[in-house]
Design a protein around this nucleic acid. Structure first.
Lengths: 203, 203
DNA sequence: GGGTATACCTACCAATCGTTAGGGAGATGT
DNA sequence: ACATCTCCCTAACGATTGGTAGGTATACCC
């Protein structure tokens, strides 16, 4: 070990002890670096060596904290939707009982976007990189994702039944607007999109 | 050369001669395969060998048609926005002179989405894969992209000045809603988003 | 101070990446 | 018939990928 490495290590160790001890573990730094790379460079460009460089270690050292690259990616993606999920559900829970479906939808939108911005690397990673994950990894990540999407589906359905969204507009179009991605079903979605953004609306 | 390869080649040659001769050249097949891969698997997963396999040739043969992988990717991405650009501008040109900014915006939305669906591989590629392109390639592709984004900026500005969009809503938020991606500026965008989708609106 | 973990290192592995060199087979023009 | 052009092939190259093996230095417990 070189002298500079030793200095860096002891400095980091003492810093970790003096301040928040739960937040800056070696594993967390790796997750942060991976989240940033997934967001800005994509899955395949998120190499173990690129992760290591951002953390300030060597690639091989990653495997002391995680068994594989995909394990790290999976945790980042899932944390991304999990944190937004929590933000939205707790925002909805904080609403008074007499809140209308529209109030709930608006609160959910706000919570979703604010949380997305706060934990932007993790959340952006789960939105932007998800579509390009290797099929197997995408399947495992889809579980947590579905759990979140279901919240919106229910929200949209309530708003639709209350008359806030035109009956003939597919709810998928509206959901797509916010969450992005997803498979494209029909070209009906085009007119739906226009109607949601600028079309007639009652109440 | 094996017998089956020879058969396939002569069959393809005669087919190309009998039907449309300009559409199914070897180069076009490579572009199609690249577009599909960029859309569904992302940039890094779009390997020369994967492209070749979809076309039915070997990786090395690609270099008879294109000088490099990035040349192919660039053409696909640029064709993706070019085709939508044309669709939107011609839809706008077809509008009567007395069309309101709102009419124009709605027509543009429709043209954008319909065209996106028709040439979905190329367009989706340019939207979904763009963010993860290598920095240098992204720079060259940004030119054509900007040209298209400017159309929307003007469209939005006209609609805003005519009062269709609340004054205090950033136009970037609205544009993001349709075109996706882009860097995230402030958290004001969150409330803007909510307001666009469900907020007050006049006219 | 000895022993056990922890956290990192170097050095390598097989696989895969984009790309190139050189050759073979069919079509075309003369 | 011969040369030429087009299109594709095989075989390899250097670089880079995810991952492994084995060693080293620090920190903490007894």
């Amino acid at each position: 070990m070189t002298i500079s490495q030793a200095v860096a290590r002891t400095a980091k160790a003492s810093a970790a002890k003096s301040e928040a001890s739960d937040q800056n573990g070696g594993a967390r730094q790796i997750l942060n670096a991976t989240a940033w790379l997934l967001r800005h460079r994509g899955y395949e460009a998120t190499t173990t060596r690129a992760i290591a460089e951002r953390v300030g270690i060597k690639a091989g050292s990653i495997y002391h904290h995680f068994p594989s690259k995909d394990t790290i990616v999976e945790r980042v993606i899932n944390e991304g939707v999990l944190v937004v999920n929590k933000a939205v559900t707790s925002a909805l829970d904080a609403l008074p009982n007499k809140a209308t479906p529209r109030d709930r939808l608006q609160a959910a939108i706000k919570a979703h976007l604010l949380s997305s911005l706060e934990h932007s690397d993790y959340t952006s990673a789960s939105i932007r990189a998800f579509a390009f994950l290797p099929p197997e990894l995408r399947r495992t990540c889809r579980v947590e994702r579905r759990r979140y999407e279901d919240i919106w589906q229910q929200l949209m359905r309530d708003a639709s039944e209350a008359g806030y969204i035109p009956k003939d507009v597919s709810l998928d179009a509206a959901r797509l607007m916010l969450l992005g991605a997803g498979r494209v079903p029909i070209d009906k979605i085009a007119t739906d999109f226009a109607q949601i953004a600028f079309g007639a609306r009652r109440a």
